[in-house]
């Protein structure tokens, strides 16, 4: 029996490698200094979906919601082996918190349809919320298995998964369809295949084709799109026109949480006492800590 998977991926600022000031003088976040990367746990999720396909057959589709530039990671998904990629991008979806994001994702998944397993990383490194997975599962009315560490087996319409818990682990059996969020220990993402990089480096979204057409009067967008579809290089692009969504549940309008204030982390004034790295000075420090009843 084969299984069709959908993988939810996100392009994130590389918060671990920040150089320079995160905040601009006007108090907004300076995203320009943050290189955009494929969220690490989402890449693990894709690897796991590809492993399921390799073993049981079926398809792997990837979805991301984000600005047009997020197509970068969709091409990476194609390089790794994804069968199809979808970019959800529309100004009306911008500024979404996890609730509004999961709403659009769930609507898109339902529109695509025909899925058995949905995978995603446990959390994205820019917000670390771990909320979008469970919220998407709730909206789809399907169960969820979070913190997945290993797929033990898939048998007809049930999947057995080892998941991490607080101070231990558990083995669960979930009925398919199910949404699974994975931790980094679950798999090591495969490297890009050179052949696939050659094949898909020119894959483009609708927005990217529109841009190409704008700069060249000889190119007509519909023709261009048809050409890319024929060559299997078209990254399906989903906007509000393609979904039957309530706009008041999308983007900033559909987000109950609002950012009231953002502050740069300011370090406290350094008022510490400097101790020389010598036996005498350290001896005095030990004495002082004894007087303070910290030692002894």
């Amino acid at each position: 029996m084969s299984y069709n998977s959908i993988v939810l991926v996100k392009q994130v600022p590389d918060t671990a490698n920040i150089s320079g000031e995160v905040m601009k003088p006007d108090g907004t976040v300076n995203r320009a200094i943050l290189p955009a990367i494929f969220n690490p746990e989402d890449k693990v999720a894709l690897e796991l979906a590809l492993q399921v396909r390799d073993q049981y057959g079926g398809t792997v589709k990837v979805i991301t919601m984000g600005p047009p530039k997020a197509s970068d990671i969709l091409r990476e998904c194609l390089y790794m082996g994804a069968d199809e990629a979808y970019l959800i991008s529309d100004r009306k979806f911008a500024g979404a918190d996890t609730l509004a994001t999961s709403y659009v994702l769930a609507e898109t998944i339902q529109t695509i349809g025909n899925f058995d397993l949905i995978f995603g990383g446990r959390q994205a490194i820019d917000g670390d919320t771990a909320q979008v997975g469970p919220q998407t599962a709730e909206k789809l009315g399907i169960p969820q298995v979070t913190y997945a560490e290993e797929i033990k087996k898939i048998n007809k319409n049930a999947i057995t998964i080892k998941r991490k818990t607080d101070g231990g682990s558990e083995l669960v059996e979930a009925k398919i369809p199910v949404l699974i969020t994975v931790i980094k220990e679950a798999a090591t993402p495969r490297p890009f295949k050179a052949k696939r990089v050659m094949a898909y480096k020119n894959a483009r979204t609708l927005m990217e084709l529109e841009k190409m057409a704008e700069g060249n009067s000889l190119l007509y967008i519909d023709q261009l799109k048809d050409e890319y579809i024929t060559k299997n290089l078209f990254i399906k692009t989903i906007t509000t026109d393609d979904l039957d969504v309530e706009l008041e549940r999308c983007g900033i309008a559909g987000s109950p949480t609002k950012v009231h204030k953002v502050e740069s982390v300011v370090l406290g004034a350094s008022a510490h006492e400097t101790i020389e790295p010598s036996k005498e000075a350290l001896g005095k420090l030990v004495e002082k800590l004894m007087e303070d009843h910290i030692f002894g």
Binding site: P13, T15, A16, I18, V22, M23, V29, L34, I125, D126, G127, P256, T257, K258, V259, H260, K261, V262, E263, S264, V265
Partner: peptide, 18 residues
């Protein structure tokens, strides 16, 4: 007022649910 670090701890955000 829900105060939390964001962007890998480089900023602190105050979130509200008005």
């Amino acid at each position: 007022l829900q105060i939390r670090p964001a962007f890998g701890g480089n900023i602190v955000a105050t979130i509200i649910t008005p």
